[in-house]
Simulated assay, not measured.
Amino acid sequence: MSALTTIGFDADDTLWQNEQFFRMTEKRFAEMLADHGDHEHIAARLLEAERRNLALYGFGIKGFTLSMIETAVEITGGEVSGSIIGEILAAGREMLGHPIEPLPHARETVEKLAGSYHLVLITKGDLFDQERKLAQSGMGDLFDAVEIVSDKSAATYARIFSRHGRGPQNSMMVGNSLKSDVVPAIEAGGWGIHVPHELTWAVEHAEAPVAAPRFRQIADLGELPSLVETIAKAG
Rank of each mutant, 00 (worst) to 15 (best):
A219E: 15
N170K: 02
S226G: 09
L142I: 04
A206H: 11
S226L: 13
G222S: 10
P196F: 06
R214V: 04
D144F: 06
S180A: 12
P168Q: 10
T123V: 02
V183P: 00
P184W: 04
A212G: 03
G190R: 10
D141R: 14
M173N: 02
G140I: 10
V183R: 04
P184V: 06
L134T: 08
K124G: 07
A219D: 15
G138Q: 04
K124N: 11
Q217H: 11
H164T: 00
L178E: 02
A185I: 03
R159T: 13
T200Y: 02
G192P: 06
H197F: 15
S226D: 15
V203C: 02
Q130L: 15
R216K: 12
H164N: 04
S153K: 09
D141W: 07
K133A: 12
M139S: 05
H194W: 14
L134N: 03
N170C: 14
K133W: 12
D144W: 06
W191K: 01
S226W: 10
S180D: 00
G192R: 03
I122N: 00
T123S: 09
A145R: 07
A185C: 10
P209R: 03
W191E: 01
A219K: 15
D129E: 15
N176K: 00
P184N: 10
M172F: 06
H197Y: 15
K152N: 08
V174I: 10
D220I: 06
V149S: 04
Y157K: 03
A211D: 14
P184F: 09
G175H: 02
I193Y: 02
R132L: 14
T200K: 07
A206G: 07
L221V: 04
Q136P: 02
V210A: 14
V182W: 01
Q217K: 15
K179C: 01
E204N: 14
A211H: 13
E187H: 01
S177C: 06
G192Q: 06
H194A: 08
P213A: 14
S180T: 00
N170Y: 01
D181E: 08
N176D: 14
Q136S: 13
M173P: 03
A202P: 06
I160Y: 01
A185M: 10
K179I: 01
G165L: 05
V174N: 01
P225F: 13
V203H: 00
K124A: 05
A202D: 14
G140H: 08
F143W: 02
M173W: 03
P184M: 09
D181Q: 08
E223I: 07
G222C: 11
E223L: 14
S153L: 06
G190F: 10
K133L: 15
P213I: 11
A206Q: 09
D129M: 13
S177D: 03
D220R: 07
G165S: 10
V210N: 12
R132Q: 14
D129L: 09
L142M: 10
N176I: 02
V183Y: 00
A145Y: 04
G175P: 05
A219V: 14
P196E: 08
Q169I: 09
H197E: 12
N176P: 02
V210Q: 12
D220L: 08
K152F: 07
L221T: 03
